[in-house]
């Protein structure tokens, strides 16, 4: 049986890397007594797959991992057990059973989009200029790979944006087909705002934060179903007490 788990990564734990998160979950499964399925072979490992690694230092309330279990208690009970054995900075929010049709695909290959909130360490940018930035028909950025450098237009990959009280909301294309990282958007914004003659405020703020002007917070990951974006957890269903195996 396939289970999808949604969790947060906040506070001091945003300074642990993606591989550390994987190791964290491997140990958490044992401490919480999750009846996880192991691979065959000499050194069996847990069947576990993570969606979309988060950058070191970024926070999230929309992280996902899929696991295979042999048996399970109800969603409520499993969330309780996992949170009891885990750290408060990695909170388990959802524990759902994935329907059979999505069984073959894992959390990673489901991902189509992601929501972010960008916090500005040096204060919010000018809203008119931001609007002008997103109003562009094309936003070309240069993308370096190991062998070549090419120009890619990222504008079509920005699905939505909005300036909120706390920061900038972004909905970006994500996943294996066309992944756009929020860092790339903000680099383009930096270039744009500087070209417009006004240096990005964040770049000149007090407190020596120039090298890291933004803090990215992931809000949700989405899959696409019949043209609609739906949160990854919504592809699964809650396990009620009576149906627990």
């Amino acid at each position: 049986m396939k289970i999808r788990i949604k969790f947060t990564k906040t506070g001091r734990l945003r300074f642990i890397g993606h591989l550390d998160v994987m190791r964290y979950f491997q140990k958490l499964m044992r401490r919480a007594g999750v009846d996880i399925r192991y691979s065959e072979g000499f050194s069996p490992h847990q069947i576990m797959s993570f969606a979309q690694p988060l950058g070191l230092g970024d926070t999230s309330e929309g992280e996902y991992v899929d696991i295979d279990v042999l048996s399970t208690a109800s969603s409520e009970e499993m969330i309780r057990r996992l949170n009891e054995a885990g750290k408060e900075e990695i909170r388990i929010l959802k524990y759902v059973k994935i329907a059979d049709e999505t069984r073959r695909s894992n959390a990673m290959s489901n991902v189509a989009a992601a929501d972010y909130r960008v916090y500005f360490r040096g204060g919010l940018p000018d809203s008119n200029m931001l609007a002008a930035f997103f109003a562009q028909e094309n936003i070309p950025v240069s993308k370096k790979t190991k062998t070549k450098e090419e120009i890619v237009d990222i504008r079509p990959l920005i699905y939505d944006w909005g300036l909120e009280e706390e920061g900038l909301f972004l909905r970006l294309s994500a996943g294996s087909a066309a992944n756009l990282k929020p860092d790339t958007v903000m680099e383009a914004w930096n270039a744009f705002s500087q070209k417009e003659g006004q240096a990005a405020e964040a770049g000149h703020s007090e407190g020596g934060t120039q090298s890291f002007p933004y803090h990215f917070h992931r809000l949700e990951l989405y899959a696409r179903r019949e043209g609609q974006l739906i949160p990854l957890y919504a592809l699964g269903e809650e396990i009620k007490e009576e149906s627990a195996e």
């Binding site: 506070g11 001091r12 300074f15 642990i16 550390d20 140990k27 900075e89 090298s211």
Partner: peptide, 25 residues
Amino acid sequence: MKELALSEEILLRVEKPARYIGGEI
């Protein structure tokens, strides 16, 4: 969040910041 002795900016600048944050199981 409990306060860390090092600023976020320093933690992002150094190699392996997880060395300095505590909070182990």
